[in-house]
């Protein structure tokens, strides 16, 4: 008898759980959703990164390494890898290149910009890696 109650309870709660998820209307979030770039981060990217890191870039090396247009279309490990690389490169101050910043000081990455970018990259990588 106890077992029966247990089974009924478990199956009912399982049923509710499944239904709840369906009712929520959301399947697992897509990669696009998980690395969705908020407006303030997008502004930083547009100003300091996108000029070289886009799919039509004339800078082949930069384009191959990272294109913000294609980021969400890559395989999972590549997205996580590139988001991890972004964090390292920003923390070490390797990008944007010093020569470029010297020539175009307006496109330098401010401390606030760095924080925004780092926060976004870390959060997105964690979400995609499921951690």
């Amino acid at each position: 008898m106890k077992n029966l109650i247990l089974i009924i309870t478990l199956s009912t709660s399982g049923f509710l759980f499944v239904n709840f998820n369906i009712a929520d209307g959301k399947g697992p979030a897509s990669k696009e959703e998980m690395i969705e770039i908020p407006d303030d981060v997008q502004a930083v990217i547009d100003n300091s990164c996108y000029g070289c890191h886009n799919s039509d870039s004339r800078n082949d090396k930069a384009k191959k390494k990272l294109s913000f247009d294609k980021l969400s279309k890559l395989k999972t490990y590549k997205v996580v890898g590139k988001l991890t690389d972004i964090q390292e490169i920003i923390m070490e101050g390797e990008m944007p290149p010093k020569k470029f910043v010297k020539k175009y000081p307006d496109h330098a990455l401010s401390d606030d910009g760095k924080d925004l970018l780092l926060g976004w990259a870390k959060k997105s990588a964690n979400k995609i890696a499921g951690e």
Binding site: K65, Y77, V80, G81, K82, T84, D85, A125, A129
Partner: peptide, 13 residues
């Protein structure tokens, strides 16, 4: 895991 992904991404390129 994240660092492994970064290395493999780099390796492939």
């Amino acid at each position: 895991k994240m660092k492994k992904a970064e290395i493999l991404d780099d390796l492939v390129d």
